[in-house]
Every structure is written in C-alpha cells, then in structure tokens.
C-alpha cells in the first residue's frame, strides 16, 4: 500500500478534511513562494509598487495560516487522528507557522527595497542578494514540492542546501562589513542590503524546518536540531 495515500479513508468527511488542509497548505505555500520572488525583484529593481504588493499579500497569508490551524484543530478534536494522519496534522501546523514567518521575512525584504528606492541604490551587495536569493527560492520550492509528494529524500536535500546558504551568507557579510569600514558614507544603504541578506538566510532556515517536518511526516522520525549527517544516519536506521 502507498503509505502516504490519503484517498482511502473509511470516512469520506475525514478524507475531505485532510484533503482541504493539504490544498490550503499548498495554496499558502504558493502565495509565500510568490512573495519571496516578488520581494527579491522589488529589492533588485527598486520597484516600490511591487514591494507594496508583497506587503499587502501578508494579510492573505496570515488569514490562511489561521484557517489551516483551525482546520487542524478541528481534525484533532473530532477525528483523533493517529499514525500518518496524526503526523500530517502535526507537520502541517508546524509548517504553516514557518511559512508565515517566511512571509514576514519577505515583507522585510520588500521594505528594505522601498527604502533603497527612496535613498538611492546601495553601492554593493546586489550580486550577493541575487545569488543567495536564488538559492533560497529554490530551497523553498523544493521543500514545498517535497511536502506535496511526501518525498523525504528531497526534504533532506533542502536541509543540506541550508548549510551552503549559511556559508554564503557569512562570506557576504564579511565582505560587506569590510566595505562599510572603507566607505562609512554608504553604511545606511549597505545596512539595508545586510538586513535583506539576513532575512534571506532566515527564509533558508524556515525552508529547512519545513523539510524536517516532511521527514517527520514520511519517516516518523524527529530530525530537528541535529546536523545533516546525523539526519542521514537516523534515516538509515
């Protein structure tokens, strides 16, 4: 039997409830993914209108978060789910809060974009933003994909990617700090870039968290707060 097949429940209402939760989660994921892409665009192209749009989307994301949480609470109260159903509900409730935080971070990036549009471009850092931004965007896409397909292997790949993002972030930070020391007049503008990079790095962390929830959902193993190597070892057991 396909363990992660959710269509065969004896209770069709239970099926519908789980299906609806999954659909809403995917919708929320799609919205948040778009937010990240738009926020990056707004920052890189100094597009204030687009930045505004990103911040407006936050409201929708928040509402979806509350809706999904409510649906999950209902399933817990009315169905007392067990085994894979229980893990799905737990994983979803945790994933939505990570998605909501990703939305917040995107809004932060959009705000930085607006400020840069007003104050004038930063002399440095756009290459790093584009590079890390792309990386993080792919991670988010992959982790949502992994959730939709219950693919623990892909989720593990996302966790491994996060390590690289952290390295890239640290190296970008070093070079930008050096630059600010050399050219103190640029500090305020470069700081906007630094906050954005920081937000991107956080998005990477949240994507990894969601990946860890996917692994819990599929394999039933808690892989939080351990290294990628340790996760791999745990999965092999």
């Amino acid at each position: 039997m396909d363990r992660m097949h959710f269509g065969e429940h004896s209770s069709s209402q239970f099926n519908e409830a789980l299906e609806s939760i999954r659909n809403n989660l995917m919708e929320m994921g799609g919205l948040v993914e778009k937010q990240v892409v738009d926020a990056l665009q707004a920052l890189l192209q100094a597009d204030s209108a687009l930045a505004e749009k990103v911040m407006e989307t936050e409201d929708k994301v928040d509402k979806l978060e509350m809706l999904i949480d409510e649906e999950c609470t209902k399933v817990l109260a009315l169905r007392q789910p067990a085994a894979s159903d229980l893990r799905l509900i737990i994983a979803v409730t945790k994933a939505v809060s990570d998605l909501e935080r990703i939305g917040d971070e995107s809004a932060k990036i959009a705000r930085m974009g607006q400020q840069l549009a007003e104050e004038g471009e930063s002399p440095r850092g756009y290459v790093e933003v584009r590079h890390i931004g792309n990386h993080v965007r792919n991670m988010l896409r992959d982790t949502l994909d992994a959730f939709a397909r219950f693919d623990a292997k892909k989720a593990l790949e996302v966790a491994a990617e996060d390590k690289e993002v952290d390295l890239e972030y640290r190296s970008a930070m070093r070079s930008l700090v050096t630059f600010m020391m050399e050219d103190p007049r640029s500090i305020s503008r470069v700081l906007n870039i630094i906050w954005s990079l920081r937000a991107l790095e956080r998005i990477g962390d949240h994507a990894r968290n969601i990946g860890e929830q996917v692994i819990y959902l599929v394999e039933g193993k808690d892989v939080r707060h351990i290294s990628v190597d340790e996760i791999e070892a745990k999965l092999k057991k």
Binding site: M1, R3, E8, H9, S10, S11, F14, P81, A82, A83, S84, D85, L86, R87, E219, G220, K221
Partner: peptide, 20 residues
C-alpha cells in the same frame, strides 16, 4: 510507536481508519 509510527502497513491502515 503503534499510534505515531506503526511498523506494518496493515497496522497503519487500521489505526488511521482506512479499513476495519
């Protein structure tokens, strides 16, 4: 274990109400 991550698919199917 049985109620969070049963080892066998039959157990899983029963626990989650997929038959029975």
């Amino acid at each position: 274990t049985v109620f969070t991550k049963p080892e066998h698919d039959l157990t899983e199917a029963y626990i989650t109400g997929r038959f029975g």
